[in-house]
């Protein structure tokens, strides 16, 4: 491993906290893989060796697990993972056209990263926000009801170094490494940040209140 002493000490401290959450060591592997992504920006050979050491597996066993899951990246990832949902419903509602324009603007295709390391593009599978279709995700935050223009603005903002703001989620999108640390189970103090009510989320509740139906009173 090539982590310097400070990085390794921090990793070991974090790993101990993760291991403490589970009665059986190996269960810590998925969060540990998110943790090494938060340091290296992908699941690096060093990261694999670190995880293997923590949960008493071989590097081959850890690699076998890591390669199964799409969120674990095998090459250095862009600072922002931009996913355009092209599963059926979003695709039909306009996701295919959004993908075409976003891909053209970035000059890259699926699972590729811009030369400046800013954006990794992904054709996303369903991200459970179909009532907000067409949907885009940036570092796993929701960008709802997208149009090509809005999507291109998000991409341009990232490429030009400006913060981007999700439609549901925190005040701004954190970089890939920071988000990976949250996914390892470490809170970043942003849970109360909010962008207000999403209309589709409360639309049924509103109808019930307008009608004065019993359970909505």
């Amino acid at each position: 491993m090539t982590y310097d002493a400070d990085a390794l000490a921090q990793l070991e401290q974090d790993a101990a906290e993760i291991l403490g959450r589970y009665p059986v060591k190996r269960s810590a592997l998925l969060p540990l893989l998110h943790l090494v992504q938060s340091v290296d920006g992908y699941v690096s050979p060093d990261g694999i060796a670190f995880c293997a050491n923590q949960v008493d597996l071989t590097s081959a066993e850890v690699s076998a697990v890591a390669t199964f899951y799409t969120q674990y990246k095998r090459r250095p990832n862009g600072e922002y993972q931009v996913g355009v949902c092209t599963n059926t419903l979003c695709a039909i509602m306009g996701g295919d056209e959004i993908w075409r324009q976003v891909s053209e603007r970035c000059g890259i295709g699926h699972d590729e990263t811009t030369a400046d390391g800013k954006i990794t593009l992904e054709r996303l599978e369903c991200n459970a926000a179909c009532d907000y279709a067409p949907v885009m995700m940036v570092n796993w935050e929701f960008f709802d009801n997208m149009t090509p223009d809005r999507a291109l603005r998000v991409v341009d903002d990232i490429l030009e170094g400006r913060d981007v703001v999700p439609t549901r989620g925190p005040a701004k999108v954190a970089p890939f490494k920071e988000v990976s640390r949250v996914l390892a189970g470490f809170e970043d103090g942003r849970a109360d940040e909010d962008q207000g009510l999403g209309e589709p989320t409360v639309v049924g509740l509103k109808v019930a209140r307008e009608q004065g139906w019993e359970d909505a009173k």
Binding site: M93, A133, P200, T201, V203, G204
Partner: peptide
Amino acid sequence: LFSLSGHVERPGQYEA
């Protein structure tokens, strides 16, 4: 929860 999506005027969550 009934989740309407797609070609309706007001997609969203309708608990019924």
